[in-house]
Design a protein around this nucleic acid. Structure first.
Lengths: 162, 162
DNA sequence: CAGTTATGGTTGAACTCTCAAATATCAACC
DNA sequence: GGTTGATATTTGAGAGTTCAACCATAACTG
């Protein structure tokens, strides 16, 4: 046990600002999506990531990695999305362990209907307050943090960054 | 209904980086505190904010504002903290509607025991990856977002900023 | 001062998330 | 080719959060 190095004032302020900002932003997005589309933000992201994938399909494991969710959380979420008829599960033909989640046509329509309101909310809360320069700096800082939080990201990001 | 203005690539990347970063950081903190001190991060914050207040006490409404929590969430949380013996509730003598939450001695000890590990985790995940300059930029950006998310903050911040 | 409105706080039900344990399939090995 | 270990996913129970509804008290108004 070495002596604790406490946060100085600026660190404290930065940390709390990050905390409250991420909380308020997430809550704002959750509220908007829940109100307008009846789903939490995490579920929207699942639909969105599926819609961007070839065949609108992904392995549960791949999907979990993309949305940064635990396998368990994703499984529960896909249960709900499947009940709603927005996603369906299939078994992989070669490897019967893996299941494939596919966005249904109905799911795609729901996503398409939800997207404009969601994007507007993101724009209003995240991009309108910031200058372009500030946004780009912000992105770099977040990327730095992200790589440190999840080192597995570094390789893939370098690979497919456009 | 006006035409939706979608996010361009840089905005998309910024938004997702923010999303994953805040998710991973919050999860890392939650895991560390749950493992080492048996409480989620939101509860730690409640204890921490009480400990910084005069008399280690705050009105439920004030406490809710400080930790950016809904009244309902705070009430449920204080129920748990009270069961654990870390916080106790009192009635306000003048206004019998308001209840006052006070950090107990035991609660203070638990907080003191949890703090070093928590601070170390924050430092490791947030400050070690960033330069000082980057941190200060980050703080300004977050403050901008915060004021936009919760305009009520602007006045108080200006008032008691040291 | 009675009636209305606003404020402070709590509760219960529904839902999501977490963690640990369980299931099923594939891969390797001797 | 039957164990052993790794991989892919699911399940169930417990805990936290949300939302709407509710109770109590204070403040205002005619």
């Amino acid at each position: 046990m070495t002596e604790t190095r406490w946060l100085d004032t600026e660190e404290q302020e930065t940390w709390r600002a990050f905390l409250w900002t991420s909380r308020l932003l997430n809550e704002a997005l959750d509220r908007q999506l829940q109100r307008d589309s009846g789903m939490p933000h995490a579920y929207y992201m699942i639909l969105a990531m599926l819609s961007e994938s070839p065949g609108r399909s992904l392995t549960m494991t791949d999907l979990a990695a993309i949305v940064h969710s635990s396998p368990s959380r994703l499984s529960h979420a896909v249960n709900r999305l499947e009940e709603a008829g927005w996603v369906c599960r299939t078994k992989h033909p070669r490897d019967r362990r893996t299941t494939i989640a596919t966005l249904t046509d109905q799911g795609f329509e729901v996503l398409a209907a939800a997207a404009p309101g969601h994007v507007a909310e993101v724009r209003r809360n995240l991009f309108e307050p910031l200058s372009r320069k500030q946004m780009l700096e912000f992105r770099e800082t977040l990327r730095t943090l992200l790589v440190s939080l999840d080192p597995a990201l570094e390789a893939p990001c370098a690979r497919d960054a456009g």
